[in-house]
Amino acid sequence: MKIERILLAIGTKMHRENADKVLRTSNYQYRIISNSLDVLSVLEEDLYHALFIDLEMEKGNGIEVLKVIRKHFSSPVNAIPAIALFTSQEKNNADFLIANGFNWSVPMNFTIEDLNSTISWISNAEPDTEVVKKSSSDINFEFFRQCSGNDKAFMMDMADLFYKTYPETIQRLKKFHSMQDWKMIYFESHKFSAQLAYLGLKEAYDYADSIETITEQGFLNSEMIYERILNLEKSCNFGIIELDKFIRQL
């Protein structure tokens, strides 16, 4: 996904000025706003490719605002890449942020290098057209519906659980990859593939299954494994949107 338009929501004037100074040196179109309520109204009216959001703003913090976006906005806004802006190291708790729907985090007083590396990462992490096209034919929720006894509430609970946990799983896979801990990658992908099979996310299942097979057989091509982890993430990002649509239509 190409990132061209960025929305930033920052509570303090000093940090808004810093962001403006950095963004002026970039080629991105951007808008900086100062409170969380504006985030929702701006996203309702305009399309942005990434959202940088202050964790502590007046009238609802960034975490609460993102929850509303993820839960109540329709596609593609509900899947907008979200980057947490934090002022202290304590706030940069990756597990916590991922569990709350963030894709990445940067310090509030970010530099142009921080901005570029973040955009680069986000661009790779988001589903691109090719993956979306391929995924459409590789999703079948009938087994999931059957396993859930056609119970919409239960299916929604399972979808919520998956939405909450899959970014953590992907994050763990990336962490184990950086540690070259192939045994743990094998274990994680083995477990994850069972979930994906139940949900009917076939393409994502195939990626998880291939990571499991590669690491089990000791064929340890680090780059290939990392690429498959990224593809797995893209496929899950797409799959959860489709799953949400499917459940809403029941």
Partner: peptide
């Protein structure tokens, strides 16, 4: 079962 989704199902 250690997988939350599978155990729920």
């Amino acid at each position: 079962e250690d997988d939350e989704m599978v155990i729920n199902v």
